[in-house]
Amino acid sequence: MGSAPMSLTPSIPSGPGEPDETQPAVNDSDSTTPPAAERECEQRPTYTVPTRKPSCVIKPRRGFAIDLSEIWRFRDLMGILVTRNIKVRYKQTVLGSAWAIIQPVTEMVVFTVFFGMFMGLSQKMPEVNGRAVPYAVFVFAGSLVWTLFQSSVNASSMSLISESNVLRKVYLPRILLPVSAVGTPLVDFAVAFAVLIVLMIGYSQPFHASMLLMPLVMVGTAVSALSIGLLFAAVMVRYRDVRYIVPVVIRLWFFVTPVLYPVSAVPRHYEHLLYLNPMVGPVEAARAMVLGTPINTAGWMVSTLVGLIFTVMAIAYFGNVEREFADIA
């Protein structure tokens, strides 16, 4: 056993190229050598600490702990998680991706029949160029945006607990999970948008240049949804109760957002307050683009600003609690 060089102080950094032959000799003749039984558990070779910086330092982190450059390094994983979510979606279904069309269309038909016809909302439609807007187009333009919001919040808030096994067994920037969960709703949005165009042709609605701004609506909605999803997801890791709160919140939120009804149905007095709801701006803007009515830019800005404030808060909160996830997931 005596062949290996011994050192009882293995962590002393000696520069590269520095002669180290003297060290074992000193240690071997050291009078303070511990008893044999103990020493046999102590022998190690001599180590040098590399002059380069450690590629990773593990120590307790405090405060905000999201590293943007690291998220960039994991971008491949992000892409793969998004494609996984999309692929898994309609596995073992007969109709497959047709569901991406069937779902919004059914919903639109139900809304049109019940709210448009039975409850007479189609009589209260705004007029464009002297012609009342078809309720189907009206409601579809709104529910398109709302569905993006709703499914994004649902998917991202469930993302951490449904991947708790991954949380506990591998390291990855945790924020990737809720973020990548928004991928599928975005794809659904694109599909539903195509359906909307077909619907508009069917109702011989004119197209307006403002529809080119639709990606802005999409991004704004996704970001707002993600902020809510991040908050829910982070709290849900610790308190599973949130899982049952989310659907209730979403339901209430749906009714305070003018999806089924026009903003004009809300008393004028409250109209300004309405836009503090980050979903009202995008829903109204999308609808205005589709119907060709003027966009309430100020309202849209207010909603977007509120959404961004939520986002900043959500990311800050997520970054502060992220490090606990593996211990409590």
């Binding site: 450690p54 120590k59 949380l167 067994k169 591998v170």
Partner: peptide, 24 residues
């Protein structure tokens, strides 16, 4: 995967960890 409460570890080199077969 989780942070230490105290202390530090310096790692030199890319780390691959396999705590479970087939995670994800």
């Amino acid at each position: 995967i989780t942070d230490p409460t105290d202390g530090q570890a310096d790692l030199y080199g890319r780390v691959g960890s396999l705590l479970e077969v087939g995670t994800g």
